[in-house]
Nucleic acid binder design. Sequence first.
DNA 1: TATGAATGAGCATTCATTCAT
DNA 2: TATGAATGAATGCTCATTCAT
Lengths: 208, 208, 208, 208
Amino acid sequence: MTYADRMTEAAPSAPSPRRRDRAATRAALLEAARLRFSRQGFDGTGVREIAADAGVDAALVFRYFGSKEKLYAEAVHVEIPQGLTDGPPRPLTRVTDELLYDVVFGDWEKFDGEHPLLVMLRSAHRPAVRDQLRDRLCDGYLRDFAERLGGGDAALRAELIGALLLGMGVMRSVVGSPALTEATFDETRLLVARLVRTLTEPRADGVG
Amino acid sequence: MTYADRMTEAAPSAPSPRRRDRAATRAALLEAARLRFSRQGFDGTGVREIAADAGVDAALVFRYFGSKEKLYAEAVHVEIPQGLTDGPPRPLTRVTDELLYDVVFGDWEKFDGEHPLLVMLRSAHRPAVRDQLRDRLCDGYLRDFAERLGGGDAALRAELIGALLLGMGVMRSVVGSPALTEATFDETRLLVARLVRTLTEPRADGVG
Amino acid sequence: MTYADRMTEAAPSAPSPRRRDRAATRAALLEAARLRFSRQGFDGTGVREIAADAGVDAALVFRYFGSKEKLYAEAVHVEIPQGLTDGPPRPLTRVTDELLYDVVFGDWEKFDGEHPLLVMLRSAHRPAVRDQLRDRLCDGYLRDFAERLGGGDAALRAELIGALLLGMGVMRSVVGSPALTEATFDETRLLVARLVRTLTEPRADGVG
Amino acid sequence: MTYADRMTEAAPSAPSPRRRDRAATRAALLEAARLRFSRQGFDGTGVREIAADAGVDAALVFRYFGSKEKLYAEAVHVEIPQGLTDGPPRPLTRVTDELLYDVVFGDWEKFDGEHPLLVMLRSAHRPAVRDQLRDRLCDGYLRDFAERLGGGDAALRAELIGALLLGMGVMRSVVGSPALTEATFDETRLLVARLVRTLTEPRADGVG
DNA sequence: TATGAATGAGCATTCATTCAT
DNA sequence: TATGAATGAATGCTCATTCAT
């Protein structure tokens, strides 16, 4: 059996055998789903596994969420933090600092340590997940970001910054590259800030 | 056509020749597997599908490769191109130019149009794939790259460049972000070169 | 989903009157069950569907009726109409006329347009339904009918008439055969009357 | 458990543990399916049951037939006997005699004793089965039959004969009505022949 | 009493894999 | 050696029914 690499640890939480509590059961399923999907991706996770983690019957997944796919969509959904262009005015490098922390260095406990965008990336071969990812990334983060930048190729430069941050997240959490994994947030933010400024400040010489 | 034509050709179809020798059958399976895995990822591809594409029985996958997982490993394996620090000496931005073309803009026919690293990323939720990806990326590209860069945090800066390129590939092929998808190679390389120089040139001001 | 032809329209009635007494709820369940079972058969109907039509919880089905099977039995039960040999005396062809109308051409609103016998026939693979059907048909219609006919093989001839009428109902509503579906009641009754007389009138020549 | 009425007898045949014999396995599955479907209808039969009867794994149902529905279609398919208007010329009552025997009195061993039309009737709530039934009945038996009869309402009279025979089959095998169940073929054919003649012979008086 | 949360057996179907030939 | 028949565990999902409240 070559599929033994699937992690089989029990649910870390599953606190009380709460019974007959709709909200709590739903929440327990969502929490279990988040963790499993984060670790194992969509295809690698079974609904029975999730239900067992939550301590309930698998049929409740369908009662409460309709399908595995909808459970996934709801599990990886997070309210997009408004903090890009909204909130108190602050310099762009401050904004990217926050994003860097969130996406790359943040410890998203509920998602097994990774940013939900990276979690979704892991199951992005599914069209539904891909769409969700695109919405969150392009219509969420990047659009606001591009508006903040000026110039004709604002969208492209915004996506480059997005690519950098996303790529760093991939490097750390998916690939596990050594330098980024061991680097501290402070070491990294200086480099990132320099890169962001490079894309932000208008350069008189347009030389590549 | 890729920047450096390092892919060796192979029959694109191999339709009719019924009687095949062992080597040809193996090659046909590998080619079919490469295309299917690239398009559909590991989980989304069945061994019967691959075998049917190759015109042979599915049992041969196990006879020749032992398991689906090992077939995958062999299918996505490509000899790491020597073109980073080897070859004729050329400026670093030229090297990253080549990498940008390969990873982000290149058309890898044998992998259905994408760089094998992106293909692997798509199935990276599997520990085996993840390990393979890490080896290829860290011990392959990034190590050579870091040696080329000087300074104390060379490895980190090398990974940042790697993250940028990998992130751009993800943006284009997985996420499908609009600006990067529509941008031309030439529009993009100027921006990337600027970023690379930012990480390369020693800056007197160490401000982040 | 190849079974999408299952009708999914909501209940046409039972809209608003929230608070109901026991009797009204029971009646609402029965009515909903009758319609659903008539349309979709026993296996094709779920208790949740019925309960939803009636506007109550599915558990009430079990509280009131014990099981889906018992609900079915009660739903398709109708008082056998007395109109065969009872009532004012009238010729036998008149009686079969009435039966023809009832079974084949009648519009049984409460059973979605079909005679309950045909409805039951549709789920007659269930032993319980089959028993109910046999009781209704043999101990109900056919016994009275046979008494009306004279002669040694009265029972057999009665069953032949029953078979004709039942078969016509099957042809129209289950099979959907073209001629019987489009024929009018008046076109048909002449032929049926002739057949009935054939079985009724003593024939001098006993030739088959 | 109110569903205990499902018959659970083992397969009567399952002769040899024939292994690795495509044709024999296919045939064993078909035979088991025919019996189970005949007894229990489409919904009441599981593919595991069928496979167990045939002594093989349930997955083979899908390997050989694609789906449960296709297995059903193939299981209840019989070559329609040409013997209505084809073959040596013979009087119509002789033709109906044959049909009577086939549909009502014949012992179709492979279908658990019933004519396949009656078997299909049992699962006719499924659109696919219904279509198959209609094809077999209307386009098969009845069309040829109507051509044989003359007159303006030939189709209607043909369907009346069909209804009679089908209804008799239902009475015997589904309802289990006593007289028809106990009657001999010879007792019955005389009555049926009289009925057929009634519909065949032109009557000067068109009175119903 | 009536609600609705929970259950668990069951469903058809798919899959990588093995084994007889 | 290579074919393809056979396997069995796992998949997502549905259902009638029960039980706590």
